[in-house]
Amino acid sequence: MLLGNKIKSLRDEQGVLQRQVAAYLEIDTPMFSKIERGDRRAKRNQVPKLAEYFHVDEKELLTLWLADRILDAIKGEDELKFKAIEVAKCELSKVDL
């Protein structure tokens, strides 16, 4: 819900209605509302559009989008989630980024 919170914050700061952003994304308002509340995930291709609409850094929003996906993947894995993240971090350090 990190991305949803950020979108809501940006929308509130800029005085934009949900229906305006939904129209820009070419989705209906209820679907956008679900994205903002975290009940539904934005599609990856919608994130750059959101960054453009709100005039913010695309990488920042994509990072929040990806973090939400990671948090979804480890939800309910209380005993193993931190160990899994450490293993993933070690694996990522081996990859030539």
Rank of each mutant, 00 (worst) to 15 (best):
V47G: 07
M31N: 12
K34M: 13
P30I: 05
V21Q: 03
L17T: 10
P48T: 12
E26T: 11
V16S: 01
K89L: 14
K49Y: 05
D78G: 15
A42S: 14
E52M: 04
R44I: 13
L3D: 07
G38E: 08
A42R: 06
A22F: 03
K81C: 09
D12N: 02
K8D: 00
D57S: 08
V21K: 02
N5R: 07
R69Q: 14
A88I: 15
E77C: 07
K75T: 14
I70N: 07
E91C: 13
E79P: 01
E91M: 15
K81P: 02
K94Q: 14
R11K: 09
A23R: 08
S93N: 11
K94F: 09
A73E: 08
L71Y: 08
H55G: 05
L71R: 11
E79K: 14
C90E: 14
H55R: 10
E58R: 13
S93M: 11
R41A: 15
R37V: 08
L71D: 14
V87D: 12
A84M: 11
L10E: 07
A51H: 02
Q18G: 06
K83Y: 04
L3H: 05
V16W: 00
V95L: 13
G38I: 04
I85R: 06
K43I: 06
L10T: 04
G38V: 05
A22I: 08
L92H: 04
A88K: 11
F32E: 01
L97D: 11
V21P: 01
R19E: 09
K34Y: 10
V56W: 02
R11D: 01
C90S: 14
L10C: 05
S93C: 06
E60D: 12
D72L: 07
L17P: 02
E91H: 14
Y53T: 02
I27A: 06
D12I: 00
K75H: 12
K8S: 01
A67D: 14
T29P: 09
L61R: 03
L50Y: 02
P30M: 04
M31L: 12
E91T: 15
Q14P: 00
E52Q: 13
S93V: 12
A84P: 00
K49V: 11
E60G: 06
Q18S: 02
K94G: 09
Q14F: 00
E13W: 00
S9D: 02
N5S: 06
